[in-house]
Write a protein that binds this DNA or RNA. Sequence first.
RNA 1: GGGGAAUUAGCUCAGUUGGCUAGAGCGCUUGGCUGGCAGCCAAGAGGUCAUCGGUUCGACUCCGAUAUUCUCCA
Length: 873
Amino acid sequence: MNSSQIRQAFFNFFETKNHFIEKSAPMVVKNDPTLMFTNAGMNQFKDIFLGNSPAKDLRVANTQKCLRVSGKHNDLEEVGHDTYHHTMFEMLGNWSFGDYFKKEAIVWAWELLTEIYKIDKNSLYVTVFEGAQDDNLEPDNEAKEFWKQYVPEDRILYGSKKDNFWEMGDTGPCGPCSEIHVDIRNEDEKKKISGRELVNKDHPQVIEIWNLVFIQFNRLSNGSLQPLKAKHVDTGLGFERLCMVLQGKQSNYDTDVFQPYIQKLATLANKNYGKKEESDIAMRVISDHLRAVAFAIADGELPSNNKAGYVIRRILRRAVRYGYTFLGFREPFIHQLVPVLVENMGNYFPELPGQQDLIMRVIAEEESTFLKTLAVGITKFENYIQGNPDKKIVDGNFAFELFDTYGFPIDLTQLMAREKGFDVDMKGFESGMKQQKERSRAAATVETQDWIVLNPSNEETVFLGYESLQAEVKPVKYRKVTSKGKSLFQLVLDKTPFYAESGGQVGDRGTLKAGEIALHILDTQKENNLSVHILDKIPEQWPDTFIATVDEKKRRLTENNHSATHLMHSALRKVLGTHVQQKGSLVDEKRLRFDFSHFAKVTPEEIEKIEQLVNERIRKNIQREEHREVAMEEAQQMGAIALFGEKYGDKVRVIAFDKDYSAELCGGTHVHSTGQIGLFKIVSEGAIAAGIRRIEAVTGKLAEDYVNEKINTLNQAKEVLKNPKDVLKAIEQLQQENDKLSKQIQQLQKAQAGNMIDELKQKAQKVGDINFISVKLAIDAQMAKDLAFEMKKQIESLFMTIGHLADGKAGITIIISDNLVTEKQLHAGNIVRELAKEIQGGGGGQPHFATAGGKKPDGLDKAVSRAIEFIKK
RNA sequence: GGGGAAUUAGCUCAGUUGGCUAGAGCGCUUGGCUGGCAGCCAAGAGGUCAUCGGUUCGACUCCGAUAUUCUCCA
């Protein structure tokens, strides 16, 4: 079977077991502060396990694209060096939300592997949880009994808490799990040592392929376990490994999941795969990272310099670096693999072909900037080697600087050092690294306490804010969150008029009142499906209900901007083309910011057209159309623009302003009719990444202010220019005149300086063969300098001292012709320092030119008269 | 969120312990030469040294803040 068939067989099998086949959620996580990327199949169902949302279907199966850059089998630095580490991978899974439990999960897993995929039963091993005293847990004999019906007991192993007890995090749902391992060694190897001995021993050919998790507890922050009412099944079957097993390969990279990219790379690099260890590693690294980066970009996460974007950038750069070092690439090359990826996976993941152009451009741009950074670092390194030719060891601090500042991985530095016959001081490097880590950890500790439940509920918060801004609400639970010494409280309500930050629209602010109690809601945020109200304090006694009131002014202004964003989005697509896709959005009460894919600067003419279109719609005062609880397919038929990857169970809501003009999937709040927006004005346009532009705009009163300010500035300019008919022409004339005048001044100054020079020449006296001048002038330091250098050009063997005084500042300037400096050993710097004593100042300079300044102008005469002492000696 | 670095001519970059009236290569303008692959020679234009503030007789250089970019850690 090829990989597509393997994936399809999984879905077909679970469909016959009444599972709903869910699409993969985006790999990039939006509303979860604890997670940047989907790192397991269960992520999109997290709210169901946590009891924050009810399940839509009780049985679900899917494949989930996941990304991991740290962890047991996913340390970024390991990827490519062996046959099974990956950053991005697919996790096949079947799910039961309070429906079937251990028995069915085990029976079906066995059936699929042995009957459908036809894996040899004799090479399979299973593990069950052995129990744990510290948690007071018995061995999972229930699971073992089910297994015994299919698997001989000598192939059922007990596993420790580490391997066989799954936890979502420090707190949250958890439970025992049962793993299926497969031994893919050849018969000779199997005879030498039993597979039983190698299970969970990190043997590359005796591997876990399927983990069946039985969620039955909730871990509290004090460490204790609480049994769950509804028990769930969460399974994860590693797709890439499964392909390896079914295709009879010894390495994930030998399957058709990775080979197309490896082969393409081999062609591009003019090297064969399987010939040399280091180029093989490089090809594996690149083929893995290509997938991770391309999917991330397709899901809207662009390489950038912090957070999730930075992780993507790091992955891409690692790939570039391996290509650079081991495959000899000096020009961007990874983007050329994207078409192969699209051909390979585009069928099941339409987001790839949909954005192929953008993905290629972004990758190409990143590649070329990083190749530049590498070049800078290499120069830095070579300078270091040249500066320390006898050292034979690269300083640890320097190696760390290269790593920290220029992104040079330590192994690259070692490699380059070896080429020059140098070693690297690894101890010094490690200590720099350690310090950095400690600094960061100390800066970012967030302490989250357990939820304190006031009124138990496992329903989602009902959002009332589409209709009303005030409501009587019941507190459900709250907790304290401490970060950097500041404590805030998070509060969940049964229903709320407060909009939680999402889809670019900022969260609402407002108040909670109950009798004497008045609380301020500082912000409202979303944690997965949970609406969390942020408070700075909580009441001593919780009332049964509050009156919740949203800050209306802020909300209305924000709505203006949000609706305007929709209107602008369609205007952009009309004016620039339908390749325009939203890549980011921020809407608050002051402005709207919109990032979108587009490959050229938006011209002033286009900006004007966009503004016109939007303002036209505003003037038409179009009524808002709102459709809630719409099925995805229906929404698409309505022509609604959607971002890729709606989440499982999301109710789709469509907002339209004249549905032939603007219809979008959106959970945000909007104006009743577009006239409320008043006026729309684009304030700035620019690039934020390759192929991504950003527009900022304002609406309503703020747009008025913006326009008025521009007009005022123009009016003021007019006034200053005495109200000319044509302002532009007036300014041009002014500029021309200005140019003319400055030239005249320059000429005059030259003439003046010429006069001064002539005068000074008269004052020159011969002292031996030196032309000596010492004068006091009413000029500033800059003029003295100019004069000095001009004199030096015109008079040979010059020794000149100028005492100058301007704006109450006294100074001394000395210039000496070069021949005197060498022949007479004169040093202007030393002389000026001596003379400066007369004006209570200090100074210095070079042998031929020096300056000094002082606080006592009275001493200038004396200083000037003393100058001659220094050449008489 | 916390660190490290960079920002100098249209482009790519030099610039030593604070003092060379800020330089190079490419590009540009002008003139001359020229049958040879990036033609050659000569002259010239082009700079708020990212921005603001401070220290100093004097700041591209030192200090602080801001902006932008790179980079590492979380």
